[in-house]
C-alpha cells in the first residue's frame, strides 16, 4: 500500500490482491465446531473480557456456508467424524482450520476406541493450538498467526495449500 505524502490526494495506491487480503485478514468469520470442554474456552474468548472482536473475528457463524475459519474446539469421535467432514465440505473456499486443543490436534489423552486421533485424519488443518484447553490468549495468538497466513496467501484455496489432502 502506498500513500503519496509529497502531493496529498484522496487516493491510496495498492495492488488489488493486497487490498483484498488485508480486508479478508481482519474479517475472518469463524465457525466454532464446538464439541467439548474447549468450546467453553472458545466462549470465553468471544466474551467481553478477552473480546475476539479486537481481531475482527467476532462474527461467529454457525452456518458453514457463511464462514471461512473453522475452529475445531473439542474431541472428535469416530461418530462425529463424518459430520465434521460434511460441514468442512460445505464451507466455501478459501477456508482455514484451527485445531484448538490437544484433542482436536492428536486425540490428547484420550487414546481409545471412540476417539479419533486428531481431526487431521479427516480434514486438513492449518494451525494446531496446544493446551488442554488452550487459554483464550493462546487461541487469539493462533488467530493472529492465521491472519498472517491469510495476508500472505489470501486467495489460495485450501486444496492448493494442502495438495496431499485433495479428495481425502
Amino acid at each position: 500500500m502506498a500513500v503519496d505524502l509529497e502531493q496529498p490526494s484522496n487516493f491510496i495506491t495498492t495492488r488489488l490482491r493486497q487490498a483484498v487480503n488485508w480486508g479478508r485478514k481482519y474479517s475472518l468469520w469463524p465457525l466454532p465446531f464446538g464439541v467439548a470442554c474447549c468450546a467453553i474456552e472458545f466462549m470465553s474468548t468471544v466474551s467481553s473480557y478477552n473480546d475476539i472482536s479486537r481481531f475482527g473475528a467476532e462474527l461467529v457463524r454457525f452456518s458453514p456456508r457463511q464462514s471461512d475459519l473453522m475452529i475445531i474446539a473439542g474431541t472428535i469421535s469416530y461418530k462425529q467424524a463424518p459430520v465434521l467432514k460434511t460441514i468442512y465440505a460445505q464451507m466455501a473456499e478459501p477456508k482455514w482450520v484451527i485445531a484448538m486443543g490437544v484433542c482436536a490436534s492428536s486425540g490428547g489423552f484420550y487414546n481409545n476406541y471412540s476417539t479419533l486421533q486428531g481431526a487431521d485424519h479427516v480434514i486438513p488443518v492449518d494451525m494446531y493450538v496446544a493446551g488442554c484447553p488452550p487459554t483464550p490468549e493462546n487461541l487469539l495468538h493462533s488467530l493472529v498467526l492465521i491472519q498472517e497466513q491469510v495476508e500472505k496467501e489470501g486467495l489460495v484455496p485450501s486444496t492448493v495449500r494442502h495438495p496431499d489432502r485433495v479428495g481425502a
Partner: peptide, 11 residues
C-alpha cells in the same frame, strides 16, 4: 447422543 463418548469408564 454419544458424539463425544470419550470412554471415561474404560479409561
Amino acid at each position: 447422543i454419544g458424539y463425544i463418548h470419550r470412554c471415561f469408564e474404560k479409561e
